[in-house]
Amino acid sequence: MVTNDIEGVRRTLAAYCQLMDDGDYEEAVNLFHPDAQWTVAGVVYSGMNEIRDLVASWPVPDGIKHLTFNSIIDIENGIATAISDYLVMRATDIGGVAIRAGRYHDSLSQSQSGEWRFSARENRGSNFVRP
């Protein structure tokens, strides 16, 4: 049970990480509004079809863990903005290794069911090592 809007936004941010780690790309895409935009590596993907095609092109993760933290969330007039740091780890023989870090810049609004969904997401980050 989500007790307030800030926690609802946090829930969406966390759900994205868990769904991506589990390789449940279809459910991860469902965290976006149908007309959402997602900017990855400077390329803008618009709408569910482009976003779905993007994630479908990625391999199913094996030993990947997305971490989102230090989120600053503001809500005004039904629109949430969230700026969050992120870190992507990969399991190796020597333990977890950071392979990507950066910052998400998100805009979210509530769906008709009251769940917070991404209207816009921008990944700003860099690779540490090549997977």
Rank of each mutant, 00 (worst) to 15 (best):
I73L: 02
N77F: 05
P61M: 06
P61E: 04
P59R: 02
P59D: 02
N77K: 11
G47D: 05
V40Y: 05
I72M: 06
I83F: 00
M48L: 15
G47H: 08
V44W: 00
D85L: 07
G42A: 03
G78T: 09
E76L: 08
V44A: 09
L54Y: 15
N70S: 13
D53S: 15
D74V: 05
D74N: 10
N70I: 04
G47K: 04
G78C: 11
I64D: 02
A82C: 07
I75A: 13
G47P: 09
S57E: 05
Y86A: 05
A56E: 12
I75E: 09
A80T: 06
L54S: 03
E76C: 07
P59H: 07
D85S: 10
A56P: 09
Y45F: 15
D53R: 12
A80P: 10
P59A: 00
W58N: 11
S57W: 12
R52C: 05
D53E: 14
K65M: 13
A56D: 14
V43M: 09
I79G: 08
G78H: 08
N70C: 12
E50D: 14
G78V: 04
D85W: 07
A41I: 04
L87P: 03
L87I: 05
S84I: 06
A56Q: 15
D62T: 14
N77A: 10
G42D: 01
L67Q: 13
N70R: 12
I51H: 02
Y86F: 14
S84E: 02
W58S: 05
T39D: 02
N49V: 14
N49H: 11
V40C: 03
R52G: 11
V43G: 05
E50A: 14
V43A: 02
T68G: 06
D74H: 09
N77M: 04
M89E: 00
A41S: 12
V55E: 10
V60F: 06
V43N: 03
W58R: 11
Y86R: 04
I73C: 00
